[in-house]
């Protein structure tokens, strides 16, 4: 077995300060450091909101969020020391979301030009002929 713990759980697993037989023990200073960094990044990202840097506002906001998320994953969630397969599972799920997002934005951007609000082009005339008195919405082609 891969389990090579060298701890003394035989001497009483309940001793304060004992070491875990599984998993990774993250030092307190590191947790505190990561927590503080996360708070600092939050302050920074809120501050940047009030500065107009055009397109870069969203880039900065999401960039900072990405850094924060990475910190949480690596240190709070122990991914830094965990099996790489767990990281793979997580990354694959994110990639699938991004894939779906990319496909859908690509798609909606393309068919947006064909979209219009209201009825199909000759619906009004057809309805007038075949269904006099039916409620008819007005039609106006989409103009961006």
């Amino acid at each position: 077995m891969s389990h090579t713990a060298t701890t003394s759980h035989e001497t009483g697993g309940k001793t304060p300060g004992a070491h875990p037989i599984v998993g990774h023990l993250v030092p307190t200073w590191l947790l505190m450091f990561v927590g503080t960094s996360l708070l600092m990044l939050t302050v920074i990202t809120v501050a940047v909101r009030y500065i107009d840097i055009g397109e870069f506002n969203i880039v900065v906001a999401l960039g900072v969020a990405l850094v924060k998320a990475t910190l949480v994953c690596l240190f709070f969630m122990h991914l830094r020391w965990d099996r790489s397969f767990n990281t793979l599972v997580f990354v694959v799920s994110v990639v699938l979301v991004l894939l779906m997002m990319a496909f859908l934005i690509m798609d909606t951007n393309q068919y947006r030009a064909l979209q219009f609000d209201g009825n199909a082009p000759n619906a009004e005339a057809t309805l007038q002929a075949n269904a006099p008195g039916a409620p008819v919405a007005r039609f106006k082609p989409y103009s961006p």
Binding site: D117, N119, N130, A134, A137, R138
Partner: peptide, 10 residues
């Protein structure tokens, strides 16, 4: 012939 849904106009 179906009357289309009564959509709000622009």
């Amino acid at each position: 012939v179906f009357a289309v849904p009564t959509l709000a106009p622009i």
